[in-house]
């Protein structure tokens, strides 16, 4: 059964150093907490690029198609016939294409963010400390029971103000 060790840090550079060593020694899977996004932590964790943009692209393309389609379909199904004027015409319908593209594109972006970030989440308790939203940084190292001592030692060596085991 996997367990974990949580280190609470007051300083940013200590957190970065702890992450780098834990990663280097492959102690376990890391989750890093910070009250605000920091490039230093992102570089230390070195995660893959966020694929949120794919949700944005798919949403925007769906939206622009739907916006044009609803206007063209509505006009053809309930035609307002004016002499010399086309029943459906793309230029004014670009307003619908654009507006619906923005709306669906944005909403799918938010959906993508939620999905990829794993929220909504029912519980925040495992490996989480309320101090992480306030001013402290945290490193949660999920590892096998035999590696817990090593994780604890690394966290303490880099100046964690609190280290505790959790599961």
């Amino acid at each position: 059964m996997m367990q974990g060790m949580l280190g609470v840090f007051a300083e940013l550079d200590s957190t970065v150093e702890a992450i780098e060593e834990l990663k280097h020694k492959q102690v376990g899977k890391l989750t890093v907490f910070s009250p605000t996004p920091r490039h230093e932590l992102e570089h230390a964790v070195d995660p893959p690029q966020s694929p949120v943009r794919k949700f944005t692209l798919i949403g925007a393309l769906s939206g622009v198609c739907f916006g044009y389609w609803i206007a063209i379909w509505g006009s053809n199904y309930w035609p307002l016939v004016v002499g010399g004027k086309a029943i459906s015409t793309w230029l004014p319908y670009t307003v619908f294409g654009f507006e619906v593209m923005v709306m669906v594109g944005c909403l799918s972006t938010v959906f993508g963010m939620f999905y990829l970030a794993g929220i909504p989440r029912l519980t925040t308790t495992v490996g989480y400390d309320p101090a992480f939203s306030h001013g402290s940084y945290g490193v949660w190292c999920e590892c096998a029971p035999e590696k817990l001592a090593e994780a604890e030692a690394i966290l303490r060596r880099h100046g964690a103000v609190e280290v505790r085991g959790d599961r």
Partner: peptide
């Protein structure tokens, strides 16, 4: 259930940009 994880911030920042 926001937890301030690096993963959350990374997707949040990207989504916010878009």
């Amino acid at each position: 259930g926001w937890r301030n994880t690096e993963r959350e911030w990374r997707h949040f920042a990207r989504a916010y940009l878009f």
